[in-house]
Design a binder for these strands. Structure first.
Length: 267
DNA sequence: CGGCATGTTGCGCA
DNA sequence: TTGCGCAACATGCC
């Protein structure tokens, strides 16, 4: 599920379902998701409250309550929010529920997460993980000069740099792979070989295009992801742009597909 | 059975 | 102090 486009779709869902809604019941028993706090704090913070806003930065969601409380949700690898009836049975891997009333209608918003790499936190202050995030490519403009400086600083591969959440919030393995292909830049290129302002601009633009492409795709399909990607997971197949056989390499421990024919690597 | 997976974190070591 | 590589987390799926 979750990189920036999926989390953005989730934000829009939660906004529709929750803003203005009053919480009639809330529960999670999962100490892993709420770590390091007790899962009991979840119900305590939510019961009787009204949601005022649903915000997103990168892969993090923040739900703001009418008393100043905040709920932070990170979907990890397999997390997701769904809306069901109050009486719906507990789904396999359901980890939390928020029952609400909105405009006279009662229903339940449930969080499911098989692997439990996600987080579900309540508090009154923004958490450190939220504050440390870099610019969100969907919400903010990119300061090309600043990004250029970040690139110049390291010999780290450019793909690892753009996946650093302090550099661009929300860019994960799929977006980085797709965005660099769109930018025609080899993901292995050391940052300090991409010194031209044009390089920084091309990368930011490629990532934005990858985000827009996936968001547009989500509007049409619910499970069309695999078919909408150009190179991710397609090593061995022909490049959709130039026909060269797509290569595979591991960067920062993550599998990366790229085209040796049209993604340039500067010496 | 083995290998891989959209994310993050912590540890050992240079 | 910084950074890098890698295992770990928990589970599904091919």
């Amino acid at each position: 599920m979750p990189e920036l486009p999926d989390v953005e779709i989730t934000r829009r869902d939660l906004k529709r379902w929750l803003v203005g809604a009053i919480v009639t019941a809330a529960d999670t028993r999962d100490a892993r998701l709420s770590r390091p706090a007790s899962p009991r704090a979840f119900a305590r913070a939510l019961l009787g409250r009204t949601f005022e806003r649903v915000e997103r930065r990168g892969k993090w969601l923040r739900l703001d309550l009418d008393d100043g409380g905040k709920v932070f949700s990170h979907l990890g690898m397999t997390g997701g929010w769904v809306r069901v009836t109050i009486a719906a049975p507990v789904a396999r891997f359901e980890r939390a529920r928020i029952d609400v009333v909105l405009r006279g209608r009662a229903y339940s918003v449930r969080y499911t997460d098989a692997r439990r790499f996600g987080r579900l936190l309540v508090g009154r202050e923004d958490i450190a993980d939220w504050n440390a995030l870099g610019p969100d490519l969907l919400a903010e403009g990119v300061d090309v000069g600043r990004f250029s400086d970040v690139l110049a600083k390291g010999r780290r591969a450019v793909k690892e740099i753009v996946m650093d959440q302090r550099v661009f919030a929300g860019v994960g393995n799929i977006l980085a792979t797709e965005g660099l292909w769109m930018a025609r830049i080899d993901p292995r290129s050391p940052g300090n070989t991409l010194l031209l302002p044009a390089d920084a601009r091309a990368i930011a633009r490629g990532l934005r295009r990858a985000i827009a492409h996936e968001l547009a795709d989500r509007k049409q399909y619910t499970d069309g992801r695999a078919d909408s990607l150009f190179v991710y997971g397609r090593a061995g197949q022909p490049c959709p742009r130039c026909g060269t056989r797509l290569s595979k390499v591991v960067l920062g421990g993550r599998t990366t597909a790229f085209c040796g024919g049209c993604q340039v690597r500067r010496p």
